[in-house]
Design a protein around this nucleic acid. Structure first.
Length: 678
DNA sequence: TGTGTCTGCCCC
DNA sequence: ATTCTGC
DNA sequence: GCAGAATGGGCAGACACA
């Protein structure tokens, strides 16, 4: 059997993972095997039956065999194209880690963007390796783009176990957990161990067998493709193999990558700007020469470039792909990525605001019901409306662009029965009882991502779509149309079924509408600017959400958890209880938000003397302090001993005036919960 | 087969 | 989801 | 005002293990 190019290198890398670090290449020129991999084309791939006997591999002692069964993914993990820009060296994972370290240390915004742009250029600039797509995703803590069904299925537990194993026979998962409580961040824990890979590496010389970005990517993709019996332990083995080859800086980044938390201070906005900076600066300069009136032309061109990148991201949801597109096809290529029925767009989001805010900002306000359900986007091309081609049965996407069609047959039927032109609709799915009245959010959850027994559950919990926006109708993209026009088209497309809007220009009228919505069992109202365009992914001031003011409870701190990141030295979470008689307290949830760093430090100091016991990051605390905690709703809970839990709990203040005996009781909570349900 | 634990760019 | 923080 | 970070409850699905 012959394997070559990228496939060969990947297989070799993967065999090393399976065998541990102690494998040496014999008679294989790695440089000549190197071949770039993108996300685009289809690639050939091979499967090898017995890696142990594969020619060119020879065990060299070291760690020895772990998980000797090769992973055979169902889908092809080697989807890379054998692109033209081959024979260039791959970016080493260590180089990525080193640059990431610098990023994390850089506080200034502009400079961060510069550094990210430099990194992107190094990963995929002309004549460089083509690790651009991968590096772009890695920066954001992702292996797969958002609109991709694949998942790693590796969480904190599996990651800790893999680290423990790589750290040696004397280190157990409990030790790792202890260190995590100490360091407050898994990356630092991983970097703190001397992994076997380093010793193994030293045995056969400097610079050999270094991990590349591409190899890490390939290994993680393969890991993601694994499923079924034994997959958990194979994933652990694969991760172990990777950690084994890591130097501390690499281990830190790898641990963070698999958990999706890079902690670099680099988010989507920074990467978006950096893509423009790295690959569209030339276009900017050209534009600049032509139009040099008024504003700084370079700046204007740069804004234009950033806007083009942003739009491409809104419709493709793939940072890696957009980076490559910007580099290879520039502004024109980015602008060619438009809306497409069947490809989800990022949802427009809202921020909190009041009726007065809305009237002041918009004058006339579009008032809609805020439903307590799950956001969906529906794409549909009816057979009858398909020009030449085939139609597209209704597809339903979640806010994170997961395809949830199969769980929501009501939505499919509803749209199919009413819509006769191609559309993209935005709306909310709510659970309803037999009378059509809204049910609690928890009921939506029982349906939303269900795969089994959909039909049976359908009888128990009904679902209803409230469509409130229309992004595409009958061949026309509507993103840049004002809300008014979009809603008119929505009504055209969904006769008698679109969610209703009411226009108001004074706060009192809005408050009346809000009271009516709450009375009907809804969450509140949305207050929208009637003249605003639909801005995907934007949490701007054109959409405001208005919910009732928070209610509060006085609860007793009965436990805590050590925090992570900037809360590493502090308690990051407090476990709450309410009085259940006889100096007993029944738990009702945790709080972790709403505390300033200062309040957190004070509370940590104050409660430390009352610690009863510690187990990993979990701490038991003698009831002593009373906190005022805000919440939105009291729900029934299977996890807390009171049988209730707070929805959206947040710290409001310390009740120094209250002793634990004066805190709220379970009895009162039960009463409040009952009120809420009625 | 039943139960416990972990995971999810999960949903909010 | 909510909230705080630094720029 | 924005982006980023650090956190909440609860559900189904999937896997491990007894």
């Amino acid at each position: 059997m012959v394997v070559e190019g990228a496939v060969a290198e990947r297989l070799l890398d993967d065999f090393r993972l399976l065998l541990g670090a102690g494998v040496e290449l014999v008679g294989v020129d790695r440089e000549r095997l190197a071949d770039p991999v993108g996300e685009g084309g289809l690639g050939a791939h091979g499967t090898v039956d017995d890696p142990g006997r594969q020619k060119g591999l020879r065990p060299t002692g070291g760690v020895g065999a772990v998980g000797t069964r090769p992973v055979r993914p169902e889908t092809d993990p080697y989807r890379g194209a054998f692109a033209e820009r081959s024979r260039t060296p791959r970016m080493e994972f260590a180089a990525f880690a080193e640059r990431a370290e610098r990023l994390a240390a850089e506080p200034a915004d502009i400079e961060t963007t510069r550094l990210v742009a430099d990194l992107l250029a190094a990963a995929g600039g002309r004549g460089k390796s083509d690790d651009l797509a991968t590096v772009t995703r890695f920066l954001l803590g992702r292996v797969f783009p958002a609109h991709d069904t694949r998942t790693l299925d590796v969480g904190p537990a599996l990651c800790r176990e893999a680290i423990a194993r790589a750290a040696g026979p004397n280190v157990g998962a409990a030790d790792v957990e202890e260190r995590l409580a100490e360091a407050g961040e898994i990356g630092a824990v991983a970097a703190g161990f001397d992994f076997g890979g380093q010793r193994g590496l030293a045995a056969f010389g400097e610079g050999r067998d270094r991990l590349t970005v591409a190899a890490v990517d390939a290994a993680l993709r393969e890991l993601a493709a694994d499923a079924g019996d034994g997959s958990e332990s194979r994933k652990r083995d694969a991760l172990f193999g990777l950690f084994n080859r890591c130097e501390p800086a690499e281990a830190k980044l790898l641990a963070r990558l698999v958990l999706g938390e890079m902690r670099l201070g680099v988010g989507e906005g920074t990467v978006r700007d950096a893509i423009a900076e790295a690959f569209l600066a030339e276009a900017s300069a050209d534009d600049g020469k032509e139009g040099n009136d008024g504003d700084d032309p370079t700046l204007r061109a740069r804004d234009e470039a950033a806007a083009a990148v942003e739009r491409a991201l809104q419709v493709t949801n793939d940072y890696g792909r957009v980076a490559v597109l910007a580099r290879d096809e520039g502004l024109a290529g980015l602008r060619a990525e438009g809306l497409a029925v069947g490809r989800p767009v990022q949802a427009m989001l809202a921020q909190a605001g009041t009726a007065t805010d809305a009237v002041e900002a918009f004058g006339e306000v579009a008032v809609e019901t805020k439903f307590d359900g799950a956001r969906v986007q529906v794409h549909y091309v009816p057979e009858s409306a398909a020009e030449g081609g085939e139609g597209l049965g209704p597809r339903v996407y979640s806010r994170n662009m997961d395809d949830v069609t199969d769980a929501l047959p009501e939505v499919v039927e509803y749209v199919e029965a009413r819509v006769s032109v191609p559309v993209i609709l935005d709306g909310e799915v709510v659970a309803v009882d037999d009378d059509g009245d809204p049910l609690p959010f928890q009921e939506v959850l029982r349906r939303f991502r269900r795969k089994h027994d959909v039909d049976r559950m359908r009888e128990e919990v009904g679902l209803r779509l409230h469509a409130f926006d229309c992004l595409h109708a009958d061949g026309e993209d509507l993103l840049d149309e004002p809300l008014r026009a979009r809603h008119d088209l929505l009504v055209d497309v969904l006769p008698d079924a679109a969610a209703s809007v009411e226009f108001a220009d004074d706060p009192e009228a809005i408050e009346v509408a809000e009271a009516a919505a709450l009375d009907a069992g809804h969450e509140g109202v949305m207050l929208k600017n009637p003249d605003a365009a639909y801005t995907p992914g934007d949490r701007g001031r054109d959409w405001l959400k208005r919910k009732p003011d928070v209610e509060t409870l006085d609860a007793v701190v009965v436990g805590a958890e050590w925090g992570e990141g900037r809360r590493a030295e502090l308690f990051g979470t407090f476990l709450l209880g309410v009085g259940a008689g006889d100096d007993e307290f029944a738990t009702i949830g945790k709080v972790a938000t709403g505390l300033t760093d200062e309040a957190l430090a004070d509370l940590t100091e104050r409660l430390k003397p009352h610690v009863v016991s510690e187990d990993g990051t979990e701490i038991e605390i003698r009831p002593e302090a009373v906190l005022e905690v805000g919440y939105e709703e009291i729900q029934t809970s299977p996890t807390y001993s009171s049988g209730y839990a707070l929805r959206f709990p947040r710290f409001v203040g310390v009740r120094d005036d209250k002793s634990v005996g004066d805190a709220d009781s379970l009895e009162r909570v039960a009463r409040l919960a009952g009120d809420g349900a009625e």
